[in-house]
Simulated scan of single mutants.
Amino acid sequence: MWHGEYRHPRLVEVYDIEHLWGWEDDFFMRVLAERTAPRVLDMGCGTGRLAIAMAGAGHEVTAVDPAGAALDAARRKEGAAGVRWLQGSFEDLPGGTFDAAFMTGHVAEHIVTDEDWSGALHRMRGALVTDGRLVLDSRDPAGLPWRGWAPDDTRRDIVLADGSVVEAWSEVASTEKDVVSVVHHYRFDDGLELTSSAAHRFRDEVQLRDSLRVAGFRVDQIYGGWGREPPGLSGDGELIVIAIAEPRMLP
């Protein structure tokens, strides 16, 4: 199943157990608080952890995701009523609406082709007001993150809320240039076995800067870790981008 952690209800439950509040969420909330941003977009919101926190901090939040099962889980959470949930993708974004937009959880990596990536960035620019901020994270390819996606490195037991245990592991299916395909395996106590597949496109700092510029953004900062370290100087192995929506050129 493609991106099963967001599309299959049982894998959504596993995803939520594994992805609790972390340093990255603290980082994004601090960035959001640095400038006035009444209207916020959370693009690729998943099960809504960050969107609900941003709404709880007083922002008007629109959270968008193509996966219905993930949104169903998000809507059941405490505080979810304060968020506008929308099932859709980049094509469904309203224009000139948001003061800040977030693509977290390495959403950017799952936009594989250059054409789709360019289209996504242009639509994010269209959704932002001039001087609005786009914040996104992607793993730094210089750190070769896929090296850690082998069964021996990823095998783990996940304890669900009812006490049952899911055995999980991952493996790289293929590597082509800067695209890595991975398969995640899940074996439940009741004998159910599910797999989830994904492809990751790893863009370096130059590629990110160039593509953002073409889409109408000015890069303000790129960090390599959640402590705001420069790229390459953190064990986090991230490229965390804060970009500013430039004024649109008149025809």
Rank of each mutant, 00 (worst) to 15 (best):
R49W: 03
E78L: 12
E205T: 08
G48V: 13
T130P: 04
R49M: 15
M124K: 00
V179R: 02
D220V: 15
S138V: 13
V14G: 11
L41R: 00
D131M: 07
R123I: 07
W226E: 07
H184F: 07
W85P: 05
L192Y: 00
L71G: 07
H110F: 13
R35N: 09
H59D: 04
R49E: 10
P151A: 11
A55W: 03
R228L: 14
M249Q: 04
P251N: 03
A81F: 04
E171Y: 05
I52W: 05
F27T: 03
L93Y: 01
R7W: 08
L136Y: 03
A100T: 04
A198K: 03
D162G: 14
L134Y: 02
M54Y: 00
T97P: 01
D131V: 08
T62R: 02
K177F: 10
P251G: 11
D99V: 13
S170F: 04
V214S: 08
S211E: 10
M54W: 00
R218T: 06
V61P: 05
V61M: 07
I240Y: 00
D137G: 05
E24L: 10
D137M: 06
E78G: 11
A120T: 07
W169K: 01
K177W: 06
A101F: 02
Y15R: 11
S89M: 09
S181M: 08
W149L: 15
F98D: 01
T113V: 11
A70N: 07
M103V: 09
E205I: 12
L121V: 02
A37H: 00
D210S: 14
G4C: 14
Y186N: 12
E18G: 14
M124C: 09
W23Q: 12
G79V: 14
W85Y: 05
A81N: 05
G82V: 11
R39D: 12
V159M: 08
P230V: 12
L71Y: 03
H59W: 06
F188A: 07
G95K: 06
H185S: 06
M103E: 02
W2I: 15
I244F: 02
A168D: 01
G79W: 06
P247W: 06
R156L: 12
K77P: 02
I111L: 13
S196G: 08
E78F: 04
L128C: 10
H19C: 15
